[in-house]
């Protein structure tokens, strides 16, 4: 078994914490796991990407082009930026929330709605969710990322209680309840 999971979004959406969780769940479940990410300037609204690799033994911390099993897009258009990593059998988990890039905000560029519709067809399976809507029902707008993690968890073979335990250890204690709630709502989509 191997999972190559590429998780990406916009700085501040919780992609880094989410990929930490996936990595730890895999390790807790007896697999080797590695993750690699580029941050540093991410906090300033830049694009953030984490490579998570899970197998019996993982070497490279980076996923090769065309070899990701699952792409997890925390923002609606971001998957377009990483389409090179998708294979013909890739699954896409797509949060439909939009965060407009500066060029769109200033009216110089358009949000690529049309390209999004076209390129969704490249995936064997697409699971969409509105993470902010879920977060709102969970009572905390900041736990949107955990709904995405829930949707991802459903695709993987790791046990649900392992996920919940890892999440409890990783999020601030005051937000455990809302995070677990969002996770479950994402899981059950």
């Amino acid at each position: 078994m191997k999972y190559d999971i590429l998780m990406f979004g916009v700085g501040g959406q919780g992609t880094v914490l989410s990929s930490d969780i996936v990595c730890e769940v895999a390790l807790e479940s007896g697999f080797d796991a590695k993750k690699s990410e580029i941050h540093g300037m991410a906090q300033r609204g830049g694009s953030v990407v984490s490579h998570v690799r899970i197998a019996e033994k993982v070497f490279s911390p980076v996923i090769a082009l065309g070899e990701a099993d699952i792409l997890v897009s925390f923002e609606q258009m971001e998957f377009l930026r990483y389409i090179e990593y998708a294979s013909d059998n890739s699954t896409l988990i797509l949060n439909t929330n939009k965060i407009f890039p500066p060029g769109v905000l200033s009216g110089k560029e358009e949000y690529p709605d049309k390209i999004i519709r076209q390129k969704l067809k490249l995936f064997k399976y697409v699971k969409t969710l509105d993470a902010l809507d879920i977060a709102k029902s969970a009572g905390n707008m900041k736990v949107a990322g955990m709904a995405v993690v829930g949707a991802l968890a459903r695709m993987l073979t790791f046990k649900k209680d392992v996920w919940e335990n890892v999440i409890k250890g990783k999020v601030p204690s005051k937000t455990i309840e809302s995070n677990i709630k969002a996770f479950n709502m994402g899981y059950n989509i």
Partner: peptide
Amino acid sequence: KTVKAKNPILNLPNRPPNMC
């Protein structure tokens, strides 16, 4: 041989780092 990857999508609106 390497896996033939899908073509990148050019001219997407960028997300350069910005002052907060």
